[in-house]
């Protein structure tokens, strides 16, 4: 496993990904470095390759060519049994929250620790602290369908962050939320970013990107067409 400079927690090196059965690559010769503690927006139209990029970081799929480094490891050559360990360093949040409706809020968050073998004592300590961080103190015993969309997304963020990951991946986390609620979620992601966690967020939401003035990487048809610090949304296509 080749080590890369540790300031880059994510590094794409000429990455091309072509899905089987398709001719046009989903990503084409994409190169980008994301440093520790950065907040990066990944913007672009549907089908521009944002989700593929996130899936590559999670090693849900492997590049057709090129190299992907995450947390100092070249992950396209990583053995399958090491993948769970990699994912413990990455928290993930989705547009559709993906909570377990049969479990309470606290159990949903605790589940992420439970299934990686954390002790009950650790869970009892970390879950309430994280719920407080995301602004859900006192709601641990509620069930997800008793909560608003914004609160559900906070549960999902708590679950992604409870293990204090190095990287937080957010795939359209505000896609199902109204603007006010979205602003609250962005505020939370910003605070998580301030703890030193690298945040990579794919989004369609122009106002959020314009407001936050963070680094923007824009994809069009699988290619990086723009990579600017403190960018705005204004998608080209």
């Amino acid at each position: 496993m080749r080590r890369v400079a540790s300031v880059h927690v994510i590094r794409f090196d000429q990455v091309t990904k072509t899905y089987p059965g398709t001719r046009r690559p989903a990503l084409e010769r994409v190169s980008a470095d994301i440093a520790k503690g950065e907040f990066v927006f990944l913007v672009g139209a549907s089908g521009s390759g944002k989700s593929t990029a996130l899936r590559l970081i999670l090693r849900e799929t492997r590049p057709t060519s090129g190299r992907v480094h995450v947390a100092g490891k070249e992950i396209n050559r990583m053995a399958g049994w090491k993948v769970p360990r990699l994912r413990r360093q990455i928290g993930t949040v989705f547009q559709d929250f993906r909570l377990l409706n049969t479990k309470t809020v606290a159990e949903n968050v605790g589940f992420a620790l439970q299934v990686i073998g954390k002790s009950r004592r650790d869970i009892a300590r970390d879950v309430p602290a994280t719920l407080e961080l995301v602004g859900l103190e006192g709601k641990g015993d509620r069930f997800p369908d008793e909560l608003s969309g914004g609160e559900q997304q906070r549960v999902a963020i708590a679950r992604a962050f409870v293990n204090r990951p190095m990287i937080l991946i957010a795939d359209e986390p505000t896609g199902n939320l109204d603007p006010t609620t979205s602003a609250g979620i962005m505020n939370l992601l910003d605070r998580i970013n301030a703890t030193g966690t690298t945040v990579v967020m794919a989004t369609h939401d122009a106002s959020i990107v314009d407001q936050m003035r963070k680094r923007v990487i824009e994809l069009v048809d699988g290619r990086v067409v723009r990579d600017e610090a403190q960018g705005a949304y204004d998608v080209q296509s």
Binding site: P84, R88, G91, V115, I116, R159
Partner: peptide
């Protein structure tokens, strides 16, 4: 499948799943 999806994402080992 929902649980399994989450377990995979948060890094539960295959054996655990």
């Amino acid at each position: 499948r929902r649980e399994i999806g989450i377990m995979r994402l948060v890094g539960a080992s295959t054996l655990y799943i």
